Simulated assay, not measured.
Amino acid sequence: MEAEVRDADSRRVQVVERAFALLDVLVAHGGCATAGQLKSASGLAGPTVHRLLHTLVGIGVVHQLNDRRYALGANLVPLGESATRQLGGPAVPQMQALVAELGESVNLAAMESEMIVYIGQVPSPHTMRMFTEVGRRAHLHSTGVGKALLAGLEPSRVRELLAATGMPALTEKTLTRPQALLDQLPRIAAQGYALDDEEQEMGVRCLAVVVPNGPSPMGLSVSGPTGRMDDGFVRHAVPLMRRSAAEIGRRLGRLSPRLG
């Protein structure tokens, strides 16, 4: 096993990893950063950062603004759209079936670095419904999917993730202390689902379960107004969501060799 790990490590190309590290830093800075910020956050030497940026600008995945800062480039858009379709597409039939059964918007999200990113949604037929833009990133601590995924991690790793992004208060109900969230996680793990109870947006409740066996840590969620998503709704929805999540995991798992 150790020999296999060493062999896998030997096939990794350092310059590619460093290039993606710079892109991760740009994402973490909201899509735009100075060369100095990229150097500081990535830990790379200044000449290395400038060589990588020159190459990334040349292929259009990064561009330089008039004020000399660097931003994510337009050539990333088709890559992101293609990845989203490939990951979210196989889940659509199950998501549509859940919307038909539950009447609320269904989302598919994956953990990316220290955040979650929404990769699919089927909206509710109700006039008053929750809409989440595909591609939007959100914090782990304030979302149902984020909390469901954190419940499967060691407390030390949870603290690392929370420290990386902080725990901003999005509403008066958002948990803003690591220990307050850590105290919830054993119950979430035992019951098999997590709730965002107006922690992301007032008046909105979100119920989430983990998608097992996917190509990356992923979760399935249902969101809607608190008045419609009461405790009775949760009891009815959780078994249906677990079955749908298991099927989505199986479908995405079959794609994982191509995704890798």
Rank of each mutant, 00 (worst) to 15 (best):
M1A: 15
D196P: 01
R235Q: 12
T174A: 11
L149H: 07
A138V: 04
G232A: 15
T171A: 07
A3T: 11
L52E: 13
G58P: 01
Q37S: 14
R129F: 02
G88D: 12
L153V: 03
R69Q: 10
T48W: 03
L181R: 08
R6Q: 12
V15Y: 03
A8H: 15
G224A: 05
H29Y: 09
T171C: 04
A180W: 07
L150H: 08
R254D: 09
D231V: 03
A163K: 07
T226C: 14
M128Q: 07
G46E: 03
L182H: 04
D183V: 06
H50N: 06
T127N: 06
I119N: 06
Y193T: 10
L149G: 07
A164F: 05
G36P: 00
V99K: 01
R6W: 08
A189I: 01
G89E: 01
P168Q: 04
G120P: 04
M1N: 11
T143G: 11
V61P: 00
P47E: 04
S105G: 02
G253N: 12
G214D: 10
G88E: 08
D230C: 07
A246K: 14
R159F: 09
A163F: 02
G31N: 09
R12F: 14
G30P: 05
K173P: 01
P168I: 04
R129V: 00
T165K: 13
T55S: 03
A110Q: 08
R18N: 13
R228T: 15
T176P: 04
S223Q: 07
A21W: 01
V145D: 11
V117F: 01
G260F: 12
Q200D: 10
L26P: 08
V15L: 12
L182E: 08
R159H: 10
A33T: 02
V25D: 10
V238Y: 04
T34E: 01
K173I: 01
P257E: 12
D7I: 02
L38G: 02
G260Y: 13
R242V: 11
L140S: 06
I188A: 13
T165F: 11
N66K: 13
L149K: 07
T55C: 00
R51P: 00
E199K: 02
T84G: 02
L108V: 03
L182R: 03
G31P: 08
G166Q: 02
G30I: 06
G43Y: 09
P47V: 05
I188V: 15
R254K: 12
V15E: 14
S40C: 06
Q94L: 11
V92E: 15
G253P: 10
L150V: 07
A151Y: 05
G192D: 09
P90L: 12
Q200K: 04
P90H: 12
L149Y: 06
A138T: 05
A33W: 07
Q64N: 02
H63V: 06
R205D: 07
R69Y: 03
P186H: 08
S105A: 12
P212C: 11
E17W: 09
A45T: 00
R68L: 14
S42K: 09
L44M: 14
S256M: 06
D9S: 12
V49C: 01
A45L: 01
G260I: 06
A19S: 12
R69P: 02
I59A: 00
E4A: 14
P239N: 12
R18K: 11
L153E: 15
M202D: 08
